[in-house]
């Protein structure tokens, strides 16, 4: 009787397992994971002319991703400018941000307050309300680097509306990694 009970339990467990797993196939999943890398450039100039640069390793976009990388695509680039020290609150910037010397974005007398919070450089309001533009050639150059993910030089340079110029420029590249 006890052996019969054991047999019934084993058979029933297997039947139920087969029943409920028969209709469910777990696919070989491709996960899409959001990731980002930031270039932080500190500027501390007593005059109105400013410049600064930082090396950024694009391989950092793959930090924490264990599986094989199937694809990587950029979906956003953001800019934030933090005012430091005695920098005038109403300071405006003229200048550009470049990747390995290729201009990515240009600012024409844009108040730094516009970028007090992290903001997408592709925001329509920036183009419509301010003298701000994204250089398509520079963007194409950046996107082409994603085949190899090298270390790039991110630089800013230009002239501000006043002085001193003590700011922190944060440029963040947002990407998605498709992995298994």
């Amino acid at each position: 009787m006890i052996r019969f009970g054991y047999s019934m339990i084993m058979i029933s467990t297997l039947i139920i397992t087969l029943f409920i797993t028969g209709g469910c196939d777990v696919t070989d999943p491709t996960f899409i994971i959001d990731t980002a890398v930031t270039a932080t450039i500190e500027i501390d100039e007593e005059t109105s002319f400013y410049q600064g640069s930082e090396e950024v390793n694009l391989q950092e976009l793959l930090d924490g991703i264990d599986g094989p990388v199937i694809d990587i695509n950029v979906f956003n680039i953001t800019l934030q400018i933090e005012r430091l020290g005695n920098t005038p609150e109403d300071l405006s910037l003229n200048g550009s941000l470049s990747i390995n010397g290729n201009t990515l974005m240009s600012l024409g007398d844009v108040p730094i307050s516009v970028f007090a919070n992290e903001r997408s450089i592709f925001d329509d309001a920036l183009v419509n309300q301010y003298n701000f533009s994204v250089d398509n050639d520079g963007l194409q150059y950046l996107l082409a680097l994603f085949d190899d993910l090298p270390t790039v030089n991110v630089s800013v340079a230009g002239e501000a509306s006043g002085n001193p110029v003590n700011v922190r420029v944060l440029t963040k590249l947002h990407a998605q990694v498709s992995t298994e």
């Binding site: 139920i16 029943f19 409920i20 209709g23 469910c24 696919t27 999943p29 996960f31 956003n76």
Partner: peptide, 24 residues
Amino acid sequence: EHPVYPLNYKFQNGLIDASIMPFA
């Protein structure tokens, strides 16, 4: 896809191909 720039955003793929969601 972004209407102007060469950017695109991908939503997560499905992970389970199922006609029934089982439990026991």
